[in-house]
């Protein structure tokens, strides 16, 4: 749910542009970081991890309006740099499916990429603490996912707050004019402008809605990530403990 599902044209253009620029800069840094790494084996891994993320993101859990991101899995398996690149690929592709605004790909990559990067570092930190436990990899991954999602969701709420997304302010929609146009037979002139209400965005309602539904999603995603990483750590530990990219 840390994805920004705000349609194109609702967020202010300055914020959208900042999102794209920040993502481009981070992508540039990530690509520089992996420049000297042999990517031959990593590209197929990016492919399958991104594909899993796409499947997760497009499976909507309707009652709680949530979808799982599996971005922490991407971070753990691919490392922070390739994880971030993978998140960008996923956001770009799901935008092509029409599964989210195209203009918010930059901001979405920042938010979901944060999950991947923070998830990776938290996972390794927790793994160090829990290494004596038999199921440490799964548990560390689950905890790392929970914390990363809390952080990324807060970031998302922060972005919405910074954007001052008061749709009334941004959209300048004119109700009387709309009704007049639809129900009159010809063009008519607006005599009075709709008085915009200068209410502050109801960030509290938005945050409460997102956080309330989010808790179920975080738990679900943490459980899934935990099981997946537990499985991978048993079968292919090299995939999660190899060279950091």
């Amino acid at each position: 749910m840390s994805h920004i599902h705000i349609p194109d044209g609702v967020l202010p253009i300055w914020l959208v542009v900042i999102g794209w620029i920040a993502t481009a800069v981070i992508l540039y840094l990530c690509i520089r970081r992996v420049r000297n790494v042999q990517l031959g084996r990593k590209i197929p891994l990016i492919g399958i991890v991104s594909a899993i993320m796409i499947v997760g993101m497009t499976l909507e859990i309707v009652p709680i309006a949530y979808h799982i991101n599996m971005s922490v899995i991407a971070g753990i398996v691919l490392g922070p740099a390739l994880g971030f690149i993978s998140v960008f690929i996923v956001d770009l592709m799901i935008a092509m499916f029409g599964h989210g605004g195209f203009t918010v790909v930059g901001l979405n990559t920042l938010v979901v990429g944060t999950e991947a990067v923070i998830g990776f570092y938290l996972f390794h930190a927790l793994l160090g603490l829990l290494s004596s436990s038999k199921t440490s990899a799964g548990l560390s991954a689950a905890l790392a996912t929970m914390l990363s999602l809390i952080i990324s969701t807060s970031l998302m709420i922060g972005i919405v707050y910074v954007s001052q997304v008061n749709p009334q302010k941004i959209l300048h929609v004119d109700k009387e004019s709309f009704i007049g146009k639809v129900f009159s037979l010809g063009p008519h002139r607006e005599n009075e402008k709709h008085e915009m209400q200068d209410k502050k965005i109801d960030i509290e309602t938005f945050a409460k809605t997102v956080l309330f539904f989010g808790v179920f999603g975080w738990i679900l995603e943490a459980v899934i990530t935990g099981f997946v990483i537990r499985y991978v750590s048993r079968v292919r530990p090299d995939l999660i403990l190899s060279e950091v990219t």
Partner: peptide, 26 residues
Amino acid sequence: AAYPAIFAVLFAISSWNEDWIIPATI
């Protein structure tokens, strides 16, 4: 192509202000 409507509805509800035009626009 109707999939994003699910999330747009969530966003629209959170910005509900007794005015259906804005949620509809979103």
